[in-house]
């Protein structure tokens, strides 16, 4: 298992066009990024295409990492997230995809997820707990499942502007809590 520092060093080598460092970076980070893409895109072939595109971006943009001030893994995940969200937003919103989204949204936690959730209480979890359940689910649904305002509004059966207001207030509360 590579440390954050190792990944950061690999990125620096990739910026210098070191193919072996790139191979190693892929070996150690591709499963996580593929997990992120699958979770957001919910379509395996599309996630596979996206993974290839994401690593192409990483190869070309590695030199910008050092100035970003993020942890190496967060930086890599951010590239994958942004790529997947661009793909999601470029999709035409169909009735089927909304139904599919609702199915996924109502999925219950696996026993494993439950165990992790109860054993490792993170600050962010405590802050989410301070929000109303539906609002906490909306913010998490946006971040983890890639739901748009439109999808969130439909799931909660509220007008889109109401959804915006809810989400913005929730974000402000979250920030306040995280900075306590």
């Amino acid at each position: 298992m590579l440390t954050a520092d190792d990944i950061s060093k690999l990125l620096a080598q990739v910026a210098l066009r070191d193919r072996q460092a790139f191979d190693m970076l892929y070996e150690h980070t591709s499963a996580k990024l593929f997990g992120v893409l699958l979770r957001l895109l919910k379509d395996r072939p599309e996630a596979e295409d996206a993974l290839q595109e994401v690593y192409t971006k990483i190869w070309h943009k590695a030199d910008r990492y050092s100035s970003s001030g993020a942890s190496a893994m967060t930086w890599l995940i951010t590239i994958a997230r942004n790529h997947a969200i661009d793909r999601l937003r470029a999709r035409p919103a169909t009735a089927e995809s909304l139904e599919e989204a609702e199915t996924v949204a109502s999925k219950e936690r696996s026993p494993e997820e439950e165990a992790i959730a109860s054993s490792e209480r993170r600050k962010i979890d405590n802050c989410f707990d301070r929000l109303e359940e539906s609002k906490s689910a909306a913010v998490k649904g946006a971040y983890l499942e890639g739901y748009s305002y439109q999808e969130l509004a439909k799931q909660n059966d509220v007008p889109i502007n109401t959804m915006r207001t809810w989400l913005r207030r929730s974000l402000a509360k979250l920030k306040e809590c995280l900075e306590e």
Binding site: A31, K32, F34, R39, E48, I124, K140, Y143, L144
Partner: peptide, 21 residues
């Protein structure tokens, strides 16, 4: 990005198929 970064731990890693590499 940093504020939400902890949520990234909630996403399971999935080994991609060899043909992508």
């Amino acid at each position: 990005e940093n504020r939400f970064a902890d949520l990234n731990d909630d996403i399971d890693a999935v080994e991609p198929p060899e043909h992508v590499k």
